[in-house]
Design a protein around this nucleic acid. Sequence first.
DNA 1: CGCGAATACCGTACGCCATTCGGTTTCTGA
DNA 2: TCAGAAACCGAATGGCGTACGGTATTCGCG
Lengths: 205, 205
Amino acid sequence: MARRGGYAKGIAKREEILSTALDVIARHGYRGASVKEIADAVGLSQAGLLHHFGSKEDLFVEVLRKRDEHDTAVALTAFAERGITGALDAFVGVMRANADVPGLVLLYSALAVEAADPDHAAHAYFRDRREIFRAALAGGIRQMQDDGALDAHLDPDTLATAIHALADGLQVHMLIEPGLDMAGVIQHVVGALRPEPRHDEGGRA
Amino acid sequence: MARRGGYAKGIAKREEILSTALDVIARHGYRGASVKEIADAVGLSQAGLLHHFGSKEDLFVEVLRKRDEHDTAVALTAFAERGITGALDAFVGVMRANADVPGLVLLYSALAVEAADPDHAAHAYFRDRREIFRAALAGGIRQMQDDGALDAHLDPDTLATAIHALADGLQVHMLIEPGLDMAGVIQHVVGALRPEPRHDEGGRA
DNA sequence: CGCGAATACCGTACGCCATTCGGTTTCTGA
DNA sequence: TCAGAAACCGAATGGCGTACGGTATTCGCG
């Protein structure tokens, strides 16, 4: 487990480790991002690194958790300022932004799969996150249906599940086809689910 | 590389290894499916196992490749017998069937992510497969649009990309939520993309 | 200011992993 | 039937994540 409390030096080092880990993943791939490699990059021994985060898994989960905090803050602000449509735009915008952070998509996808193991540190993270995200998404869908911005025949829960899965699936595919315009694909599909007058927004693979 | 040629004994052993590997993954998880574990399960030493498949990665890719052969055969037969709608049904049916093979979804998802590394044995497999699958899917979509079974405003390539990503994303999510009805979700979404008279098929998460 | 407990960090060692190598046994078609 | 190919093994190698015991540094509190 990550050590609690912390001197100024430790807190700073922890931050440095979190961002350096992403760099190392981006440069060496997920397989090449060993504890030794990350430790070298921040100028620590392996044991020194593991002092800050109890395990490699914990470190990686922490990277995602921190990114989540930032992302949800962005989405909530957009919702407060521009309502549900703003939140949807923010969601797509966040995806677009995260896609440009090298290593992040790779880390997210890798952990999402490893988290299948109930003993994995990321298991609880993904389970909880999935539930929260889907509930929020389903709520937004319902609201858009009330506003007439989305086909009323659709089941909000099923559609929320689908959109979340679509987003995660696109990230996996992006690993093999880096040019993939994830946000564009999502916009195209969501745009197709409007009730009558189809907007026809772009987005090619 | 997998040894070529082969005596009867070797061919039989190879088949046994392929199916046993899935069992071990199902029982011990992807992490627990070490070469030693699989070798023990088939009654071989680690070196003995690696004699049949040059590496662990090669072995796993072979499992997927074999499953693909079966699946595409099913889809092609359905297409020949019942046209494009039959092929779509077959696709959903194959997903449903594979979801019931313990270990298969796990192996597929894990390799899909590992394949991000260009040096990984599965990289070429997923790259090629992705291209073939999307082209076939886009062709089917175009045909369904001509038949009036699908909204004509949709871009076939983008939609094909989306459906493929949706299918893969659902598999990842299924690892954490085993009860997830992947096929149902896909049917619901595709059903929603019909032109005018919405069918409203079920499918809850 | 200075003391001592908490924190930061390191060297070493352990067990597991995939893979390699050189060797022995078993198979089979010519 | 017999040579060469294939099947298989034991042991060794290098890399991995991590546990442990120890030392050096930090900094709130008296």
